[in-house]
Design a protein around this nucleic acid. Structure first.
Length: 263
DNA sequence: CGTCAGGTAGCCA
DNA sequence: TGGCTACCTGAC
């Protein structure tokens, strides 16, 4: 399968900390998301899909990687540098349930370990999927997680209790949050134990397409302080929309990936 | 040893 | 509302 992808960077998109279930293979990236998995590489302005589960189509991949989207505009020197560094990066259109669990795992944690937690959850609770010569795991459905050895083995630490709590949510309720306003959806997400303002904003940005949701983690807080003179975290979201406009969230991902790559 | 990582809940004023 | 602090774990 070949997919036209102009002004797109597969590497920046996959490795920018928005997706957690991927592995680098000689042929490209082996990526799993919910009940889909595929092996993909980039050659110039094309994506090459070497193998995939039957439920992966060109149309779905174009939608998932937001190939139709255009990058945000820089508003100053620093955001221009970030945009230049992350050229071709996109914000993927994630599944809300997998995104919720991913960012529940993310709190007070590093990306290497978040990825280990997510692959462990899929391996211990999901069904195997065949992708060419590789086997990966579908993400479990809500309700599929269980307390016990399979969960302990993942070593989620104190996050395990948040995972079990989220496990009992109703997925149609979760999907219905897509029709709510930013504020209402944010409040609804924060009613889930373990979801605070930062994780809620990540889910709004990555799974519900709220481009103005501006997650403030340690890296972005540092940027807002050093570059834009905002010292209090509670002011950063509002200030970001003032500075960057309604695409503040999209720009956040560029700032985050740029800052992390510079360390 | 201490610090840090895509933070949050619980508690207190 | 805002400012603490403890928290699983593994890397450094």
């Amino acid at each position: 399968m070949r997919i036209p992808a102009s002004n797109f960077s597969l590497a920046h998109t996959i490795e920018s900390g928005q997706l957690f279930r991927y592995e680098r293979k000689p042929e490209g990236y082996l990526l799993a998301h919910r009940d889909k998995a595929f092996l993909v590489s980039q050659q110039g302005d094309e994506l090459l899909v070497h193998a995939a589960t039957p439920n992966v189509s060109k149309e779905w991949l174009s939608w998932f990687f937001a190939l139709d989207a255009t990058p945000p505009a820089a508003v100053d020197e620093y955001s221009a540098q970030a945009l230049a560094f992350c050229g071709g990066m996109r914000i993927c259109r994630q599944d809300p349930w997998e995104c919720l669990i991913g960012f529940l795992c993310s709190q007070n944690n590093n990306i290497v370990r978040i990825r280990a937690l997510m692959s462990g959850i899929a391996r211990n609770f999901g069904k195997p999927l065949r992708v060419g010569k590789y086997t990966v795991y579908a993400f479990p459905e809500p309700g599929d997680l269980r307390a016990g050895r399979a969960l302990d083995e993942i070593r989620a630490g104190y996050r395990a209790k948040y995972l079990l709590g989220a496990n009992s949510i109703n997925e149609s309720w979760l999907r219905s949050l897509g029709s709510l306003s930013h504020e209402d959806a944010r409040a609804a997400l924060q009613s889930i134990h373990g979801v605070g303002p930062k994780v809620a904003d990540c889910i709004l940005l990555f799974a519900y397409g709220h481009r103005n949701a501006f997650p403030v983690d340690t890296w972005v807080a540092q940027i807002m302080q050093e570059q834009y003179g905002v010292h209090k975290r509670v002011h950063m979201q509002r200030k970001a929309v003032e500075l960057f406009g309604s695409d503040a969230g999209i720009l956040q991902q560029y700032l985050f990936h740029y800052k992390r790559s510079m360390q």
